[in-house]
Design a protein around this nucleic acid. Structure first.
Lengths: 238, 238
DNA sequence: GAAAATATGTGATAAATGTTACATTTATAA
DNA sequence: TTATAAATGTAACATTTATCACATATTTTC
């Protein structure tokens, strides 16, 4: 039995799906949008924007992997989303006329198409369907974050890890076809699932010992999708 | 020293602030909006709408307390927001032309002003500032949910409880001036902070024994704001 | 390429949290 | 009102997770 389909169905709940934003545009409109893009590269570790920074425009990821995070309470940072190829980011601040409320940093070398604030706002006026799409996307994102809250509030670490492995596998699949496996830093990974680095390590080791995943020099590959998926669905909560 | 101000500053991070939605409207517009409202009551325990239900309109809470929750994975439900007086709810599904993605249930007797889907959509067309306000509010809500994710991912149960006590105190303040204290069921409270009912009970007891809160027949009152607030800010994370 | 800094792995231990089981209180319905 | 159900409190115990203290890679910098 193939678990790809039910897994995809499941991971959808944690996907912003912002790649549908340009759906419903005519070809003329699409190429108009295309013509306004400016292509920029970000090296691994560099930031696309900072918390409290003044919004400059939006970024469409051509190829890359980007973490979105924000400061909670003291100085602790929390990653709450990973973007990859085809996703649009940076529009929240523009839509609400506020400063950036979170930060974005490339966790792999990234190519983006940049659209300046001015061009973006013009486009929104010229192409009404774009504004509609953005609105429905914002509403959809609301559900994704709610699902994440539920996951963190109700599931044990190993289930949380199982979920994020499935999510990250798809992200890396889109990013580079999983050529080099999942290569998130252990810090980022622990942060994502709300665990300490050490606990995450132990969880990973257990998965490895059980033959669920394969780890070679940090790169993780899933070998037993069935186990991960059943673990998520069957395992009782906290 | 009064802790009210810094506490308010802090709890803002967990507040949807949807009560600003009608700001910027002229008096004529305001009374036009008013005229379209239909007044409805919901008894404690009754639902305003269900997950997967077809959106009928939006609800402005006149007086009440409402929990928003959704089903995560199996049949487990997760509460991720509590609405009170002055807040508008139910517009996500309308804006995205989807079914309701979550459910809302009155946890205290509630009076709402209901605006039908049709009237709501007409208003959005007639009063552009309303659409702008909704958009910025959606972007703001995004940040609130991200903060909640960080709280659940990084803080211990007792810190999470401290935060929710401060939040809930303000909600009840708006609802009935804290006349009867915080009266959330232990189930809902445990669900909100991502704990079991028993662990929550222990935490509450500890707070009570330390003189931080007062409990009389389920109703909770905060007696030591300073302690709660410092607990949140000083206590190291998980 | 060597040295320093950073990231990762691991084990012992402590602390936090969940589980089970049952008593007690409070709400609900007949 | 009484009977019944639901919610809450509590304690012993099991499990999960965090902390601490290092050893060992792996990267980065000069």
């Amino acid at each position: 039995m193939d678990f790809r389909k039910p897994i995809k169905e499941f991971t959808k709940k944690f996907d912003f799906k912002s790649d549908f934003l340009f759906e419903g545009l005519s070809n003329t409109e699409k190429s108009h949008v295309q013509s306004l893009f400016e292509h920029i590269r970000f090296k691994r570790g560099s930031k696309l924007f900072y918390e409290e920074g003044i919004p400059t425009g939006v970024f469409l990821i051509e190829e890359g992997l980007i973490k979105k995070y924000k400061t909670i309470i003291g100085e602790q940072e929390q990653i709450f989303y990973i973007y990859t190829n085809g996703e649009l980011l940076g529009y929240h601040a523009l839509l609400s006329n506020e400063r950036y409320q979170d930060a974005c940093e490339a966790i792999e070398d990234t190519k983006v198409s940049f659209l300046s604030k001015e061009n973006f706002e013009n486009l929104l006026d010229e192409i009404p369907v774009l504004k509609e799409n953005l609105l429905s996307n914002l509403a959809h994102e609301f559900g994704v974050l709610a699902n994440t809250i539920g996951l963190l509030a109700q599931k044990t670490q190993s289930v949380r890890l199982a979920v994020f492995l499935l999510i990250m596998e798809e992200k890396y699949q889109k990013y580079d076809g999983m050529k080099g496996g999942i290569r998130l830093s252990r810090f980022d990974m622990a942060n994502l699932i709300g665990a300490t680095r050490e606990s995450l390590g132990r969880c990973l080791k257990e998965f490895k010992d059980r033959g669920i995943i394969n780890i070679e020099s940090k790169a993780i590959r899933i070998t037993d999708y069935k186990d991960l998926f059943e673990r998520i669905n069957n395992e009782e909560s906290k």
